[in-house]
């Protein structure tokens, strides 16, 4: 049962988390949610990211953006790490989304084979 009381508890733990964060920085995940992204299946990806992040308490924010300008690579998920490094993951499905959270956000390892660079290389247009 969800109750409004839960919100007070979530507020407390959110404030605690902010206090404990080194340098106040956190991971940020951005999902392309323009028409092209949605048509390619960005909605279930977004929803899975929010759910998994909440359930596993990853230190990470999940946000939406418009068209990233690479429609053929949608769904696109961009990850910004705590140092501002930026990785673009392409053709992301809910399964890949979970792995990105586990390996990149959870352990700090970029999953090279899911990146736009790998996709371009596979297509031969580097």
């Amino acid at each position: 049962m969800k109750s409004l009381e839960d919100l007070k508890k979530m507020r407390e733990s959110a404030l605690k988390k902010v206090e404990m964060r080194e340098g106040g920085k956190t991971y940020r995940i951005v999902v392309g949610m323009a028409t092209c992204g949605i048509a390619a299946g960005a909605r279930p990806v977004l929803n899975r990211l929010v759910e998994e992040t909440a359930k596993n308490d990853y230190d990470c924010l999940v946000t939406q953006t418009g068209c990233i300008g690479m429609c053929t690579y949608e769904p696109i998920v961009e990850v910004y790490d705590k140092d501002g490094n930026h990785t673009t993951y392409v053709h992301v499905d809910p399964h890949r989304a979970v792995r990105i959270l586990q390996e990149h956000v959870g352990q700090g390892h970029v999953i090279e084979k899911f990146t736009v660079e790998a996709a371009r290389k596979a297509e031969g247009n580097v």
């Binding site: 507020r11 929010v50 990853y58």
Partner: peptide, 27 residues
Amino acid sequence: KMIRETLDGVSLLLPEILLWIKDYINQ
């Protein structure tokens, strides 16, 4: 608005809060 008041400065957009909103509404 009520949620924001209860959260008192903490963002509505935290994943755990967003998920709570979804579940709370469906419940």
